[in-house]
Nucleic acid binder design. Structure first.
Lengths: 114, 114
DNA sequence: TGAATAGTTAGGTCAATACCTAAGTATAGA
DNA sequence: TCTATACTTAGGTATTGACCTAACTATTCA
């Protein structure tokens, strides 16, 4: 069963920003606190936590408090759902292309049989 | 070699809208003209063609004129690049999870060996 | 308990996005 | 050549998004 509390377009919206893409890449390397994640970015902390909020609302990350820190982790399920959506569209298109090429090939063969 | 005239976040931005997601799904079923694509949407045509422009700038679709129509087609390469980006992040995360679970398992075994 | 640390809340600015209507251009067909 | 079709261009509005600063809360540790 699909991990689907959110529509894919909210996942895509969450990834439509270089800061948020970078956060996802960082979290693929392991869990991290808000300030660990924020450190590489030249951005005020409230702006950064807003990005984390977008990622969390989209279901791409989860977080919990540990003492005075908040730890974030990737939710691979949301990534997989978005991948599946794209793969479905792409494969249908590719299947159509294959049929089209087969058709062209048959036409060529028939015309060379004249 | 990757099909990469655009950064992935422009692809995600293009998909971050339900109208544009629907256009991609429609085009996975085959090429279509602007008005064919627009028909299901309750939206003025200029608004709709703006969405097509976003998809085309992101490299997700290509289009050409045929008589007085414009025909649109999916560019599967852009979809594949975005899939690859997500799959890379997800697999790194999953690999880390596997190592973590192996570690937990070993710890349990060691403690039961006491 | 007082100071430092980690993050949150409130509130504001500016640019980009998603829509619209009205009027234009280009092609096809009678 | 006139008319209908298929978009495109121009220009406007309202909402959302990405940032900021200032001030707050919660937790740790000396």
């Amino acid at each position: 069963m699909p991990n689907k509390p959110h529509a894919v377009d909210s996942t895509f919206h969450a990834l439509a920003d270089p800061t948020r893409c970078a956060v996802v890449r960082a979290l693929s390397q392991g869990n991290a606190t808000v300030s660990d994640l924020a450190r590489p970015f030249d951005m005020a902390l409230p702006s950064f936590t807003q990005h984390l909020g977008v990622l969390e609302n989209a279901g791409l990350i989860v977080s919990w408090r540990e003492g005075r820190s908040r730890v974030c982790a990737l939710n691979a399920g949301a990534l997989r759902d978005a991948e599946d959506w794209m793969a479905t569209a792409r494969r249908e298109w590719e299947a159509r292309m294959d049929r089209f090429e087969t058709h062209i090939h048959k036409m060529k063969k028939e015309s060379s049989d004249d």
